[in-house]
Design a protein around this nucleic acid. Structure first.
Lengths: 206, 206
DNA sequence: CCTACCGATCGGTAGG
DNA sequence: CCTACCGATCGGTAGG
């Protein structure tokens, strides 16, 4: 009782999850074998089962870790005081920063979660629904406050924000000229202000 | 020489490609076995090789067919006479109609193309680049004509359009209340006109 | 973490 | 399109 209990996942398991994040991202869940994973860690595949129960458990770990990161950032953005467009910007910037800082985890989260079995997939679906609820709420608030146009389509606006954020993994490559923060800002400008000229927003903007 | 030459792919091969489109979409390329495909068609897996050379050839067929559909519609949109926003709308509506009418093919095209070997993948990449070039051109034209704001970011705007279109497969389910055409229109409105109030666009719009 | 192994399945082929 | 088969690999386990 004097010693702190080892409640953290074993470091070896964490290495396994890290390797799985990498390989599942590059080759897909079904395209990655346990032997592949084992080779990466320098052990034989049978040895992996000292740390995990199954390959699917590993996928769930990677996906849940990704989902958790996105949700944490989004909750922070939604809780900000400030205008709806401030919160929308914080939400999208946070999403894109997360996606880029953890590109492999984001890729697996977005592409491979559908291969989870029913129970685990339902768990992830709940998190995705909660996530979408946060951005919808921000849009709704902006309409209530008069900041966004009254006839704005909440569902479609929320989806456009998510589409911008969720597609980043597909085109972003490290070393680009724009930072993740800058990418988020530009998308937000586009969505909030639109493209057309003849808008007084152009003059209002700094 | 009197008979027309059988130049069309054999109907059996077409059925195979159709089955592959379905299964690769649901389970992924690596998650679909040749036995699986064969079961769907009611034959033994060895028999499939009378129609194809390899499993990868099948993936390429599905992906190339999807890419072709998108490109055809996009070329038509880009060739329209009319304002840049008209062409942007036609581009996005065409993309979304194509994605929804051929949801499985679109899903495979977007998610599984990366598992093609280098040569075939490069071929698909070229088509993707051409596609992105078309929408960038439309945005550039809109800036030149003064229709879009002069400080618009061409690359980011084009990416936002593609993000909206490419993410549809991830959330759209048949039986929704919006038609594919309507979805395309609403996204286009959002991108072109923006969300904020205090825009004279609100009054200008019909 | 290794040795040694399990039954099942993988993509693909030869020959008819 | 079937029969019959190929070597390789799959996820996973028992026992140490």
């Amino acid at each position: 009782m004097a010693q702190t209990v080892e409640r953290t996942v074993s470091p070896r398991r964490a290495e396994l999850v890290a390797a799985a994040t990498r390989l599942f991202s590059e080759r897909g869940y079904h395209g990655t074998s346990m032997k592949h994973l084992a080779d990466t860690l320098g052990v034989l595949k049978g040895s992996l089962y000292a740390h995990i129960g199954s390959k699917e458990e590993l996928l769930y770990d990677v996906v849940a870790e990704g989902a958790g990161r996105f949700l944490t950032r989004a909750n922070a953005a939604a809780a900000l005081e400030g205008s709806a467009s401030d919160r929308l910007r914080a939400f999208l910037v946070g999403h894109i920063e997360t996606a880029i800082e953890h590109l492999d985890a984001a890729t697996v989260f977005l592409n491979e979660w559908r291969y989870l079995s029913d129970d685990l997939r339902a768990d992830v679906q709940d998190k995705r629904d909660a996530y979408e609820g946060l951005i919808r709420r921000i849009v709704t608030d902006g309409i209530s406050s008069g900041e966004f146009r009254a006839d704005a389509d909440v569902a479609m606006t929320a989806r456009l924000v998510l589409s911008a954020g969720n597609w980043v993994y597909a085109w972003y490559r490290p070393g680009g000229s724009l930072s993740s923060t800058e990418i988020g800002h530009r998308y937000t400008e586009l969505i909030v202000r639109g493209l057309e000229t003849n808008s007084i927003n152009a003059e209002v903007a700094k």
